[in-house]
Computed example of a mutant assay.
Amino acid sequence: MAGSQPPHALQALWWPLRSALASAWPRRGDAQMQRMRRAAGGGEGDMHADAAERMYGALYLSHIRALAGGRSGLRILDVGCQSGRLAVPLAAEGHKVTALDLSPDWLALCRRHALEQGVALRTVEGAAEDAAALLAAQRFDLVICTELLYALEDPCRTLRVLRGLLDDRGLLVTSHRTRHYMLLTLARFQRWDDLAVVAGAEEGRVLGGQHYGWHEADTLHRMYARCGLQIEQMHGIGCLSGVGVDGLAAVLDAATLREDLPRLQALEQAVAHRYPDAARYRLVIAHPV
């Protein structure tokens, strides 16, 4: 029979069935946005075990190792550690690592990965803004807080807490979303209202009402200064590629690579200092003042 319409006798059954199927199987863009919301809320997968996420972790680690300057035994706090993507490798390199996260499930995975690697680290359950109370009078040579601050409505409150945990000569390593990433990802899935929010401000409610920040470099300099911190360096994390939900994944999806993943990592490292505004994350290195 020509055309795609079902026979007239079946139409009464076909249209309700079609509507039910449409509700049961959301559009791909909607499903991807749900994944983005879950990821921002604490992660949807084990970052330590995922090959592509480990590559992005390696990009962070390359900068952290440069800051360590070959020293071992540094006191390191990883805030929002998830499953130990950064904490476990740093502990394996001989540093004294404390891993803090709000999720007991992520902390359990972090301990499991540490055990698998035969390394020791300390885990603490709690929110980033409560870190000072949870860790009492402890001070650290490095405090790491990646892929968290952009989801907080008051990142400065947490930055002040983290600053208070630094030794006098300690360094803070953080990351923030870029506007470029947000625009690219939202455009990929035609989220027009969210795109208008991102284009018109540096923070706001997107993805169904969730708060995000995508601050520009000059805004971050002022924000960190208000929190008693001075930014030393900025680098891009993921300038050339993304994973799954990223707009950058439409160009090159790191999750699909296998033997070429090390080559991508080398290229990402080579261009990180050139394009901090055009990456998945803007890596920030700061010291207390």
Rank of each mutant, 00 (worst) to 15 (best):
L267Y: 04
A286I: 04
H63T: 09
A31P: 00
R35G: 13
L183P: 02
A108F: 01
T185F: 07
T98Y: 00
A137Q: 13
A99N: 06
R274K: 12
A12G: 11
G80I: 09
R160M: 11
P26Y: 04
I144W: 06
A31L: 14
I285K: 04
Y224C: 10
V79A: 11
A201D: 14
P6N: 11
V143A: 02
I285P: 04
G170L: 01
P262Y: 07
T146H: 11
R28H: 13
A9R: 12
A39L: 09
A12N: 03
R222C: 00
Y224T: 08
V251H: 13
L264K: 06
Y212T: 00
E129W: 07
W192S: 12
I64F: 06
H215N: 03
Q230W: 10
R169W: 03
H211L: 12
A270Q: 14
A249C: 01
A279N: 04
V143S: 05
R157W: 03
R160T: 11
G204A: 06
Q210A: 13
D154Q: 14
D168S: 12
L184Y: 06
A91D: 02
A40G: 12
A131Q: 03
G94P: 05
H176R: 09
P7A: 10
G84K: 05
L100G: 07
A278S: 09
G42S: 10
L184A: 12
Q34V: 09
S241G: 00
I285V: 15
P16M: 08
A49V: 10
G29P: 01
S23K: 14
A278V: 01
R169V: 03
P262A: 08
C239L: 01
A270P: 02
T98P: 00
G29D: 15
Y212C: 02
V206A: 10
V119R: 04
L74K: 03
T219A: 07
A136M: 04
Y181N: 15
L115F: 08
M234I: 13
G126H: 07
L21R: 13
T256P: 00
R71C: 01
Q5Y: 12
M234W: 02
E216I: 00
I144C: 08
R85T: 13
A137I: 00
R222W: 00
R65T: 09
H215W: 13
R139S: 11
L159H: 08
A128D: 06
